[in-house]
Amino acid sequence: MDLWTQDEFGESHGGYAGAVLADGSEPKPVYLDFGSSAASIVETREWWAYDGRLSRPLAAGFRAACMCGWRGTPYPVDRAGMSYDELSEVDVLAAYEDWGEHIDAVERRAIPVPDDLSDAIDRLHLRLAGLADQAPVAALRAIGDLERLTHAVAREAAYSIKDDEPDWETVGVALGLDAERARRLTSHYLWRT
């Protein structure tokens, strides 16, 4: 499934145009077979796959959907006279914009990075990008130093979080993730070698 993503939250808040049935409900995922091997079978919840063919339900519309469980406003689609091939031409921009508003809300709930640190990160990014163009080996060396630094600090932060016996739901909101992904991220930094 092709997800709408943004850098900070990645697939944790990946979005897509999900199917809405005539009764307003959301159908179960469907499986599409694009070839002759097991690897060619794809699971999706994208609205266009619900075309009524091969025992699949017929979507009456679409809405923004997020991997975190959030759902947006339904948008009906007049499918009368529409061929299967024309489904890809339906404009789902309204759903994408709804998902963007959801991401904005997630960002507002997340714990802010202090302004001075955010500015320093932006400056470092620009400096490293320039160095990668002018002196790529020096850029790789600097990035190695930065990775070691961030690894050590991340482990220290993860230990502090774990020692506080956190409510993972609260940690997840602060990070803009769900509780399970927040717990996994913390464990990743604890045990990463």
Results as ranks from 00 to 15, higher is better:
Trp4Ser: 08
Gln6Glu: 15
Asp7Gly: 14
Glu8Arg: 15
Glu8Pro: 11
Phe9Tyr: 14
Phe9Ser: 09
Phe9Leu: 13
Gly14Ser: 08
Gly14Thr: 02
Gly15Trp: 01
Gly15Phe: 05
Tyr16Arg: 03
Tyr16Ile: 07
Ala17Val: 14
Val20Tyr: 08
Leu21Lys: 04
Leu21Thr: 00
Asp23Glu: 07
Gly24Glu: 06
Ser25Gly: 11
Pro27Asp: 05
Val30Ile: 13
Tyr31Phe: 12
Gly35Arg: 03
Ser36Leu: 11
Ala39Asn: 13
Ser40Arg: 08
Val42Gly: 05
Glu43Arg: 11
Glu43Cys: 08
Arg45Tyr: 00
Trp48Asn: 07
Trp48Val: 01
Gly52Tyr: 02
Arg53Trp: 04
Pro57Gln: 01
Ala60Leu: 06
Gly61Lys: 05
Phe62Ser: 00
Phe62Asp: 04
Phe62Lys: 07
Arg63Asp: 10
Cys66Thr: 06
Cys66Trp: 03
Cys68His: 03
Arg71His: 12
Tyr75Phe: 13
Tyr75Leu: 10
Pro76Thr: 11
Arg79Phe: 15
Arg79Asp: 10
Gly81Cys: 04
Met82Glu: 05
Met82Asn: 01
Tyr84Met: 13
Tyr84Ala: 14
Asp85Ile: 14
Asp85Gln: 15
Leu87Pro: 03
Val92Met: 00
Leu93Gly: 12
Leu93Glu: 15
Ala94Cys: 02
Ala95Phe: 03
Glu97Gly: 11
Asp98Gly: 10
Trp99Gln: 09
Glu101Asp: 14
Glu101Gly: 10
His102Met: 05
Ile103Gln: 07
Asp104Arg: 14
Glu107Val: 12
Val113Trp: 01
Pro114Tyr: 13
Pro114Ile: 03
Pro114Val: 08
Asp115Pro: 05
Leu117Glu: 09
Ser118Gly: 12
Ser118Ala: 15
Asp122Val: 06
Arg123Met: 02
His125Met: 09
His125Asp: 10
Leu126Pro: 02
Arg127Gln: 08
Leu128His: 05
Leu128Ser: 06
Leu131Phe: 02
Leu131Asn: 02
Ala132Asp: 09
Val137Cys: 01
Ala138Cys: 04
Ala139Asn: 00
Arg141Met: 06
Arg141Glu: 09
Ala142Val: 03
Ala142Pro: 01
Gly144Ile: 07
Asp145Pro: 00
Val153Arg: 14
Arg155Tyr: 04
Ser160Asp: 11
Lys162Ile: 07
Asp163Lys: 07
Trp168Asn: 05
Trp168Gln: 07
Glu169Asp: 13
Thr170Ile: 15
Val173Met: 01
Val173Gly: 01
Leu175Met: 15
Leu175Val: 05
Gly176Glu: 05
Gly176Phe: 07
Gly176Ile: 06
Leu177Met: 04
Leu177Val: 06
Leu177Gln: 00
Leu177Asn: 02
Asp178Glu: 00
Ala179Met: 09
Arg183Glu: 12
Arg184Val: 12
Arg184Gln: 14
Arg184Trp: 10
Leu185Val: 01
His188Arg: 11
His188Pro: 00
Leu190Thr: 05
Trp191His: 09
Arg192Asn: 03
Arg192Met: 07
Thr193Arg: 13
